[in-house]
Nucleic acid binder design. Structure first.
Lengths: 199, 199
DNA sequence: ATGAGGATGTTTACGGCGCTCACATTAGAC
DNA sequence: GTCTAATGTGAGCGCCGTAAACATCCTCAT
């Protein structure tokens, strides 16, 4: 399964389809050995190719990282969709929020690559993938809170959830287990949603 | 003021007080040339010392980074306190939140070092400095919303503000200028605080 | 005051990294 | 079948983190 490039090809020609193989290897390295292990040389080694080969497909290390991050965005989107295909109530939205934070905790290195580095705003793949996530969240908010200012509320909810993910990741909020985290996410959102009425 | 180590010493003895000089140089490098420029060797060079010298004071690069991050936490705390010494209303709290996000935008590399990397939880300085920030925010929330569940609400507010900072930093939310950002922070918080009453 | 010992800084060296360039190989268009 | 552009190789540069052996100088007990 690894070295096969595309539907049609019997013997590995020059080599496999390096571009995709590098991204796959990059994701693997990231999750096996963390952020610092994601080097062009390590990727080349894993793919079984010379250290300079990846430069035919990626301008520099940052371009590879951006491609890996783009994979991360797509997987995050899939994870959120799996939590609930089309949430339209605050409760359903909260379940998506929990999935967001759990994604960050399950795949910390990937999540940090996606959000923790200065991002290359010119990378099309990356821009498109984050726009997709952003739009998805926006739609959820619009459905869940039809009367609210969707723009501001969507931003606020995304930021809240994103911040919870990071604070857990950094150990600022301790996460003994998934259910503890889920409770915290849920209660954090609810605390904000109800604080004013008690003011 | 720079090369003097302690009250008593006329000629630089062996050299200055390297420990502190390294942190200072580290912060400078970070802000001048970004994240990747913060290397032990560059710090040593700037301080005018051999590449191995910092190892007498820091076990490894990560220890130096942790010390730099600790400086960042203290400066963040100072920035928040400068925004409002002792906030006790939602409005005052919002001004502190704006200061938090502006700190992130003004000193992005420092902020990323503080929150964007896997953190060394065993570093005392770092743990203490983040605990101070955390406690400060907690107290603000308790004063501003006396009746609310302080634990959950403080977590939620911190996460919201922290998330806003990161999303701006990553270009996910565009920040044309300080006032635009301030408005967004303000309206994001208010959107959450008022959304339920309109439900 | 002096000399031992510990703290601090230097030198040298190793391997890994990102990146470049000149060169080899091969796929596909003609 | 040949030419060409795409793709992979190899050698090499400078930077990095880190370690070990060595030099220097401060301190303090004598």
């Amino acid at each position: 399964m690894h070295p096969i490039p595309m539907p049609s090809s019997k013997t590995a020609y020059h080599h496999g389809d390096l571009r995709a193989a590098c991204v796959r290897a990059g994701v693997e390295l990231l999750e096996e050995s963390g952020q610092t292990a994601l080097s062009l040389r390590a990727v080349a080694r894993r793919v079984g190719v010379s250290p300079a080969a990846p430069y035919r497909h990626y301008a520099d290390r940052e371009a590879l990282v951006a491609a890996v991050a783009a994979v991360g965005y797509r997987e995050l989107a899939a994870r959120l969709a799996a939590a609930h295909p089309s949430p339209s109530t605050p409760e359903e939205m909260i379940s998506v929020a929990i999935a967001y934070v759990q994604f960050a905790l399950e795949r910390p290195a990937l999540f940090r690559i996606m959000f923790g580095e200065p991002c290359d705003r010119d990378n099309d793949e990356r821009v498109a993938a984050t726009a997709a996530v952003s739009l998805y969240l926006r739609e959820i908010v619009e459905r869940s809170f039809p009367q609210a200012d969707a723009e501001a509320l969507a931003t606020a909810i995304w930021a809240l959830v994103h911040g919870l993910a990071f604070l857990h990741l950094d150990g600022k909020l301790d996460a003994a287990g998934p259910s503890v985290v889920a409770d915290r996410v849920s209660s954090a959102i609810q605390a904000l949603l109800t604080s004013t009425s008690r003011r």
